[in-house]
Simulated scan of single mutants.
Amino acid sequence: MWPFKKKSKISGLPQKLPFKSGAAFLEYQCEFGHVDIVPKQGIVALVMDSSKEFGTENPVKVESDGTQKATLKVASNDGGFIVIAQTPSGKGDPLKPDDVVIWVPMLHSKEVVPDGHDQRFGWAGFIVAKVKPEIDMANPNFEILSRYD
């Protein structure tokens, strides 16, 4: 007699698709996720290391009131674009490079964009949540790890 039972059901595809990094998750979102800039509608973004990108003192700046300011790479069909954004409050976990966040664009200002630069840089918005870098096949919503509003 064989000591092992056969699986009675073939499991098929996994219910959750975890990504090895925030950068890999952003790449997926650029290809298959929501990338249209619509005021007050969130888009996936990646926290970048501001000290490496712009030579700042810290990767993410924490203001005296606890709000956090970060450089983000926002999902877009061309691989992402850069914005500077902050959290609307001092609530939530500390942000660090490679975190996946939801960025909510609020308004666009052409005046802040130097001539010849990407016009998307003129969008002002907030970081409202940090999310888990995974796709849940049973749930279309992202799993929120920390809220900032």
Rank of each mutant, 00 (worst) to 15 (best):
L26V: 04
M106K: 07
P14Q: 09
G90I: 02
V101L: 06
K40P: 00
P14T: 13
V131L: 08
G33T: 11
K52D: 13
V38D: 02
P88A: 01
C30T: 15
T56V: 07
V104N: 03
P18I: 11
D136W: 03
A24Q: 08
P3C: 11
K6M: 06
M106G: 05
E111T: 14
P3R: 07
M48Y: 07
F32V: 15
S51T: 10
V60W: 07
K5I: 06
G66K: 01
L13V: 13
N77L: 05
D93H: 01
V112H: 11
D99Q: 12
I135A: 02
D78R: 10
P59M: 09
S146I: 11
V47K: 00
Y148S: 08
F81T: 01
A138E: 11
G79C: 10
D98E: 15
K52C: 12
E57Y: 13
D136H: 05
D78F: 11
A85K: 00
F126L: 14
N141L: 08
G92W: 12
F142C: 03
I84G: 13
Q68Y: 00
S89G: 05
D99R: 07
D136K: 06
Y148A: 07
W103R: 04
E111C: 11
S50T: 14
F121D: 00
L72P: 00
D93S: 09
D149V: 02
Q15I: 14
E57V: 10
G90V: 05
I84L: 12
Q41A: 12
P39K: 02
K91L: 11
V131R: 00
V131W: 01
K40H: 10
V74R: 01
P39Y: 10
F81I: 01
V128D: 04
I127P: 03
V60K: 04
S21K: 09
I82E: 02
I84C: 12
S50F: 05
P39I: 09
F54P: 00
P140Q: 04
Q29K: 09
V112A: 14
G66A: 05
E57H: 10
S51E: 06
I43R: 09
V131P: 00
G55T: 11
Y148V: 03
N77I: 07
M137H: 14
N139S: 15
D65W: 11
R120S: 04
A45N: 05
G66W: 03
N77V: 06
P18F: 10
V113I: 10
S109A: 11
V83R: 10
D149S: 03
